[in-house]
Design a protein around this nucleic acid. Structure first.
Length: 274
DNA sequence: CATTACCTGCAA
DNA sequence: TTGCAGGTAATG
């Protein structure tokens, strides 16, 4: 569930619930999910107290009072659920944290692409920070954005999805941002005019903020920390709307194509190549 | 740049 | 049964 609005929504809820909680035990039934290994992960976190939960790109970063850090990535179908010992089991649970107060943090993942990773003991938050490009909402003013776009000839949509260039955008918000800015996803990023760059910057900020305000897109697997759905899926502009009318051209249907292997949605009138 | 791999559920 | 899925790393 992976884009910035979904991950940040979970982060805020996690910060309210698990900061100050002490990990009593860890359970798993899919060893690849705990890195570097279930034993090393468990030995380092059991007995530790969570002091902070941060986010970098789509990665959640848990800081412990032992000064160790572990991260988690939800990939496509991962969920984090905060429950009590007495609550019903959740389907596809593969990792479970038991806190000393009887509450639990459950990691569920139907496709098992997600993971939790203990960082080496000398790693700090800045180690993670450096792996990614500027955060779309925090670090990316329009001039930096322009510099990133004009210094590449890649298709604009591929560039937006590259976390090392810009952090936080995924397929939903890339599609909607490009639609909102009237830009075809296969345009070369260096071919965009100054006005188009400005429009795209504004549009991306807008759709990401709208995603945050609506608690994320629960189109498929994503739910928030307590199992509630977000509602950005009710605001989709282009993403997922194949065959439905473009809201700016009621007689024109949104079309579907593949761009760099990813499903892509465009209005053939609003968004044109060349 | 495209393809494959990691996995499984679900809709067509 | 086939193809698709919000991600990303690895490989040709």
């Amino acid at each position: 569930m992976p884009e910035l609005p979904e991950v940040e929504t979970i982060r805020r809820q996690l910060a309210d619930e698990v900061i100050g909680k002490t990990i009593e035990s860890v359970w798993e039934d899919w060893s690849k999910m705990l890195r570097p290994s279930p034993d090393e992960f468990t030995n380092a976190v059991v007995g530790a107290t969570i002091t902070d939960v941060k986010r970098r790109a789509k990665l959640l970063v848990f800081q412990l009072d032992s000064s160790r850090i572990f991260t988690t990535h939800l990939k496509m179908t991962g969920r984090l659920l905060y429950r009590s010992l007495l609550d019903e089991p959740d389907p596809y649970t593969h990792v479970l944290f038991n806190f000393t107060d009887g509450t639990q943090l459950r990691f569920t993942d139907a496709r098992k692409f997600g993971f939790l990773e203990l960082l080496p003991s000398h790693h700090t938050y800045s180690t993670i920070v450096n792996n990614y490009g500027p955060e779309i909402l925090d670090d990316l003013d329009c001039s930096i954005f322009a510099q990133i776009l004009t210094s590449s000839n890649r298709r604009i949509k591929d560039l937006l999805l590259d976390q090392t260039k810009i952090a936080g955008i995924g397929n939903i918000y890339a599609n909607d941002g490009l639609w909102m800015a009237y830009i075809h996803p296969e345009r070369s990023s260096s071919s965009l005019s100054d006005d188009e760059i400005t429009a795209l910057h504004t549009s991306l900020e807008h759709v990401i903020q709208e995603g945050l305000d609506t608690g994320g897109a629960s189109d498929n697997w994503y739910v928030q920390l307590h199992g509630e759905k977000g509602s950005y899926q009710e605001r989709f502009k282009a993403y997922g709307r194949k065959g439905q009318p473009c809201s700016r051209h009621p007689d024109v249907m949104i079309e579907y194509l593949k761009v760099g292997q990813r499903g892509t949605f465009v209005c053939p009138v609003c968004q044109q190549l060349g």
